[in-house]
Design a protein around this nucleic acid. Structure first.
Lengths: 123, 123
DNA sequence: TATTTTATGCAACTTAGTCGCAAAGGAGAT
DNA sequence: ATCTCCTTTGCGACTAAGTTGCATAAAATA
């Protein structure tokens, strides 16, 4: 895992540091987009908010990480991969990843967020 | 116009007040989703933040108004209509309304926000 | 008109995220 | 190894959109 993360940093031309390692470690293990608090909880060692956000901004600029805003006004982060949509339920606040395609549209799409009421909450 | 807005309130079972009239007047004239500041500027008389947000929340619950978050962490509001997507350019921050369809998906979709770089900024 | 309910305005508050700055850590030169 | 320079980290103060409590004003009801 350690090596994979180093490789990831290398690929995106980002210097490897312990703080960055901690963040990427959590994101790599994650099966869902996560916000700062959630990531912090999963980290082995504490990390300052400022450090976290600065590094996340770096990852994002490099295109390594992708973010979007949840229903709770918090940023959610995930490692970049195949572009997919996130459905956010306004009732249970769950985030559901889903594949979606609507041909080519206005420019380059980086994030797709749908909000509404999920199937589970509807019934 | 006055009558149209009264009718709108009536339709959604919302009591007609001057504050509500001011907000709806601006939204009805708008050709774009607008945030609190923008709406406030366009209003004839001043209105308190709290009053604005409370009424907007009311409209939203009733399904009369629809909101989403822009690239600047501000809420943007518009009168409900045909469900459409908003493309937000991360560079010029413009909001572009667009029709989009991707069949039926997870539950009931209320808002669709795409982020990325618009055509104008790409070239 | 009196009473109750609802809407408004003000001010204080909340909180995710940001910024300035000083200290710690690392890479390269001597 | 030590010195220097540059980057990264952590702390604390700050920002600002939106929220909440409470007192007043307006409207509905009796």
């Amino acid at each position: 895992m350690n090596e994979q993360i180093k490789a990831l940093c290398c690929e995106y031309d980002i210097k490897f540091t312990t703080a960055r390692f901690s963040i990427l470690m959590v994101l790599k293990k994650a099966s869902q987009p996560m916000n700062y608090e959630q990531i912090k909880e999963k980290m082995d060692s504490a990390m300052d908010k400022a450090t976290f956000y600065r590094n996340i901004a770096l990852f994002e600029e490099a295109g390594m990480v992708h973010k979007f805003e949840g229903d709770d006004r918090k940023w959610y982060f995930e490692l970049s991969g195949k572009t997919h949509a996130h459905f956010i339920c306004e009732q249970c606040h769950r985030i559901i990843c889903m594949d979606v395609d609507f041909g080519e549209v206005e420019g380059e799409v980086k994030s797709i967020v749908l909000k509404g009421i999920c199937k589970a909450c509807q019934s």
